[in-house]
């Protein structure tokens, strides 16, 4: 299907395709489920402009972490699953020598050009390949514990930390971005299915979609 307006929307220096949410047909803002006694979780799609995956060659982890700190300004901690989130930007380790870096603005990949050199590692722009879903509220841990067999309690899963796990073969990277708030990154092609399951699981506690 040709979109005749497309060439006019594109400027020579900026030709990023318009991004559509895979959740759009099932994204229903408002209160749902058992909310008469209170809304205990809030679900939203955060739609960050940049979602990057960075991987260090063996022995280059420290240099990659330094590069992420320099480009993002985030004090990314070293150590398995270490991470940090400051609202607009976030970074966390999800595997040995591998990191997810997120920015609410587009174009973060370009900022890494020349910093993450081929000698250090690789950069993969997944901005169009992942969907970011946020769950927040006093029952966020409760709802997520129904999906993932990991410990969501604050001492085991500290603020900023990242975890790699999966739900029914849907890979998920989870970052704790608040005391009772988690950001979940799933494959875009599975995002609608995961979102619907998350809504069903949230019905019992009452949920609001923002």
């Amino acid at each position: 299907m040709a979109d005749r307006q497309l060439p006019e929307r594109q400027s020579p220096e900026r030709q990023l395709p318009e991004r559509l949410s895979p959740l759009e047909p099932v994204y229903h803002p408002g209160s749902h489920g058992n909310f008469e006694h209170g809304v205990d979780v809030i679900l939203s799609e955060t739609r960050p402009g940049s979602i990057l995956q960075l991987a260090a060659w063996p022995g280059e982890e420290k240099r990659l972490i330094d590069a992420i700190r320099k480009v993002t300004g985030l004090a990314l901690p070293d150590g398995a699953g270490g991470g940090i989130s400051n609202g607009g930007r976030a970074a966390f380790g999800f595997a040995p020598g591998k990191f997810t870096v997120v920015d609410e603005a587009e174009g973060l990949a370009a900022a890494f050009a020349g910093v993450v050199t081929p000698a250090i590692g690789t950069l993969t722009d997944l901005s169009h390949g992942r969907t970011a879903i946020r769950i927040a509220g006093p029952k966020a841990e409760w709802v997520l514990a129904k999906f993932f067999a990991i410990d969501f309690a604050l001492p085991a899963f500290p603020l900023g930390a990242g975890r790699s796990t999966n739900h029914h073969d849907v890979f998920a990277q989870i970052q704790r971005s608040g005391a009772d708030q988690f950001d979940i990154y799933v494959f875009r092609s599975f995002a609608r299915s995961f979102w619907k399951a998350l809504c069903h699981a949230s019905e019992e506690v009452g949920y609001e979609v923002h």
């Binding site: 063996p58 022995g59 901690p77 150590g79 270490g82």
Partner: peptide
Amino acid sequence: HKSAGHKAGGNQ
């Protein structure tokens, strides 16, 4: 990989 040992992680 240097960041091998499991730590709880986080920025606290």
